[in-house]
Design a protein around this nucleic acid. Sequence first.
DNA 1: ACTCCACAGGAAGGATTGGGCA
DNA 2: TGCCCAATCCTTCCTGTGGAGT
Length: 353
Amino acid sequence: MIADPRVFDDEFVPPDLLHRENEIEQLLRRFTTRHPAESDVLISGPSGVGKTVLARTAVDHLETQTDITRVFVDSLGKTTGRVLRATLEQLPRGPDDVAQTLPTQDVCREIREAITGETIVVLDEGDDLPQTNAVGELLAMANVTVVVIAHNGTDWLSQLDVTDGHRLDQGHLELDRYGVDELADILERRSRQGLHGEPVSRAQLEAIANEVAGVARYGIQSLRSAAVLARERGHRRIRDRDVDDAYEHARHRMRKLSLSSLPFHHQVLYAIVHETEELSASELHDRYDAVSEELYAGSTPQPVGERARRGKLSKLAEYDLIDYDGPTRDRLYWILDEDVEPKVELPEPVSSH
DNA sequence: ACTCCACAGGAAGGATTGGGCA
DNA sequence: TGCCCAATCCTTCCTGTGGAGT
């Protein structure tokens, strides 16, 4: 049923972006302003509403029209130096591989040298950038237009240096979730691009769009899941039952992918939380201490202390794998999808009775 | 009302890693 | 080779929070 799986990838850029015509126009107008300090942009909005794909579409369009260079950097978790090195590596005249130990100031100098004409640097996943100097350094460069993508624009701006913040505030573009009709249009287009023989009705697409509350990424993954389920169940067309189960199926798959991308410590903690319905911090740490000797025996990563564990638990929550609630002292942790099985097997718990 | 306790999460600093360079 | 630099990931220390005990 799925004719072209790439259509459902997060990275897929559709040939034409629906229902963002105004935003694209706004971006292009700003990019082509005559005042260099007025071309920078901050794109903000909730997860999965198409911030990245909007930036790509606008910048790609500009590239076909004018003689600009474009650079995309995923800034998630990156420090000043890493953001700037990634920028330098992607410049056409820059080196392919920049040493991690090259001093940041030298990286800036090399970026300036490698820039020939107008250049747009898109910093995706830029939520943590205010804690670095990367944005300031790039804004200070001649011929560089900075585009930052972040979740909460107002928060983001308030954390930034005042003059830099002002500059990006002028070009702040806030994206909202799609309406049900709009998202259904988008899904209809994806269905034509990625599925065989129009197997899904408008009403079904609207049901999907409604369930995911306008979050395009979830909608697209649900559509994919509906097609997968229909195929598994031997249906020639997607049935309402497939649509009903699609969102859960999609979330399950996204969580499985998230979990497998995480390193060993996270896997151990996930396995511990997975063991029981819910558990307190002290139970969690006790269990960790109990299993760590066997689990980490002879392996390169060593068990980590409680403070480091807390950081990893936040990460697991960020990845939508676990959740917690309650005031500090009585906080409980639990798994969000029991069916997402842990990748490490824990030693048998010793029964206390 | 006060103190105690268990825990969260920020800040600072240390150990380690690894490429560049004399 | 040994030193430098920066990054990374951890620990230690610390402050804040809110329920429980007195």
